[in-house]
């Protein structure tokens, strides 16, 4: 009904936080491995951008599915469920269950990716330091 609104809200927050962080981020330490090659720690704002991309992309395609099924319409109040109080209750229930679960699963997968990437980063930097 309107479950995609929960990931959209999270996407708005992560985009704002990511943009703010990127503006404030100082240049990360750069370690030269070879003359022409460098290992750079991935800034957190870039990692947050991965989450934003997943949330925005997924929500956009999910919103299209809702248009396809006639749950989102191009006229006010845009959600057909907003027409009656009983449908609104069902809509909020769906947002609280499926919507939160969608946002949660995407965030969990992103956390997993960030953990793996951070582990690899540490390994590469450690091996570079030991070579040095």
């Amino acid at each position: 009904m309107a479950c995609f609104l929960v990931p959209v809200t999270e996407a708005v927050v992560t985009t704002i936080v990511g943009k703010t962080m990127k503006a404030n981020e100082e240049k990360q330490d750069t370690f030269n491995i070879k003359e022409a090659e460098a290992v750079e720690r991935i800034p957190f704002s870039r990692k947050l951008n991965w989450l934003s991309n997943m949330l925005w992309g997924g929500s956009a395609l999910l919103a299209f599915e809702h248009i396809w099924h006639g749950e989102v319409v191009p006229w006010f109040p845009f959600l057909t469920a907003a027409g009656s109080p009983a449908d609104m209750v069902e809509m909020f229930q769906e947002m609280a269950t499926a919507g939160i679960a969608m946002a949660g699963v995407v965030t969990l997968v992103w956390l997993g990716i960030v953990a793996v990437v951070s582990g690899t980063e540490k390994k590469v930097l450690r091996s570079w330091k030991s070579e040095k």
Binding site: C3, F4, P7, W50, N53, M54, L55, W56, G57, G58, S59, A60, L61, L62, T97, A98, A101, M102, V105, V106, V109
Partner: peptide, 20 residues
């Protein structure tokens, strides 16, 4: 890379939908 994130994001959301 952007295309990958879009499709993986949508796949995860539809996976949750499928579970429900």
């Amino acid at each position: 890379g952007i295309l990958c994130w879009i499709y993986w994001g949508a796949s995860l959301m539809w996976l949750v939908d499928a579970i429900f």
